[in-house]
Design a protein around this nucleic acid. Sequence first.
RNA 1: GGUCCCAUCGUCUAGUGGCCCAGGACACCACCCUCUCAAGGUGGAGACACGGGUUCAAAUCCCGUUGGGACUACCA
Length: 474
Amino acid sequence: MSVRTRFAPAPSGSLHVGNVRTGLFSWAFARHHGGEFILRVEDTDASRVTEQAVHGVMESLHWLGIEWDEGPDVGGPHAPYRQSQRTAVYHEQAERLVERGDAYRCYCTPEELEAQRAAALTRGVPSGYDGRCRRLTAAEQSAFGREGRPFALRFAMPDRQIVFDDLVKGEVRFAAGSLRDFVILRSDGSPTFLLAVAVDDMLMEVTHVVRGDDLLDSGPRNAAVIEALGGTPPHYAHVPQVLGRDGKPLSKRHGSTSVEAFRERGIVPEALMNYLALLGWSKDAETTFLSKEDLIESFDLSRVSSNPAAFDEKKLEWMNNHYIQRLDDDDLAARCMHFFSEEGLLPEPKTLREAMPIVKERMTTLRESVGLLRFLFTDDVEPNERAAELIAKAGTDYLRSVADALETVDPWEVSGVTEALDVAATAAGLNRREGWQPVRAAVTASNVSPPLPESLALLGKERTMTRLRAVAGQ
RNA sequence: GGUCCCAUCGUCUAGUGGCCCAGGACACCACCCUCUCAAGGUGGAGACACGGGUUCAAAUCCCGUUGGGACUACCA
């Protein structure tokens, strides 16, 4: 039987990197085994889900390079793939559970439940539903029924020790009674996550469930429901959570951690995928760089770490720079274009592409290309503070001499520009650092820029001369 | 409180009883290269949470402690 895995995000907000990391593992595992990967939208709590959020999740996945074989947009043999559209299926299966005696009506009101919880807590006994409605006599049942008292449907957990075998955690044992009877159908008739997930995984023939270990306790519950329904539970792999810098599980309060936010910062998808793959998994002791194909080829659930991993932005940025350096100039320029237009700049594509070689090792994100190359695409250049100091210190006489030297350069190429720059500096008794920095400041308006001769060559003779003469007071 | 999970450099990790007075990567420090900033090169500092066992031998196995985390909902 071929491997079938799924990724089932609850699109209540944006897809954050902790979630996609789990999705990535699930996807990589399926691809490694030549199996299918399913995208399923977990929206039993429909109130929190918007169309836009669902769309956003798919966008993020596409951008990262994770593609699915079955899902809400592409359909598939087990459609629909949105839980909110599958309520009839859940009711049908819930009914079967009742018939088999594996689910029962619970007439406890929220107030009663709350009181039971409070009482259990003060007495120091285990909290959680005590299963009292499971023991209701037929007479009591019909009495409640006649009252018209609302009821929820609870699943009756088998009353025995449960041994749960997890692909990442190993064997996990739960003593009899420690896993309480849980609600599968609310009193308003809506299904809960615990029912929906089990039913879907069974019906969609999922063979391996890869998800966060915050759901480890749901594993045996999901499996019990599937078994009660006569199905064979999938294998489960509960992977550890991704933590923030502070060691707490990653969440909104850690700032912009959504896939979309990284994209907007100029992180390239290759880098994010590579970084995420190594968060909680490793190929071996040495491997740091993995392409999508490498990942598929070598991914293995057995090498997923069992302890939680903290997200390290610095390492992501370092890796991003690594990938940027290796992108070809056309590709890189095309990717940077978006960030320029966002700042109201409209670079000439050819010039932008020609500038890539001198900035690629200098940017850790695509967005940084804008700051590095702004001087090329606008003549509205006001020297920053450090640049102004450099210009003032050098004096107009020196800058004028540089302008004069550059005036004779023909053709306007890197070698000729370098030579002229050196001639002017030497004549003034300055070394390169002393002689070039003021020129950099005058032309790029900054004390930091890509290599100077290359920058001037790209800018062109006319614009270079104009800026120098302006600053030199001519 | 109860149940469950987790514990190697600051961070991600290698390590499945001897190859480890613990290897790699990011970050950090120093030096080299150098027109600024980067990139690159070389070198350095830096960890087996603690306490008991088991064993000829333990980062690796067992128990306990401590510390994190999840669950304990008619949330997912």
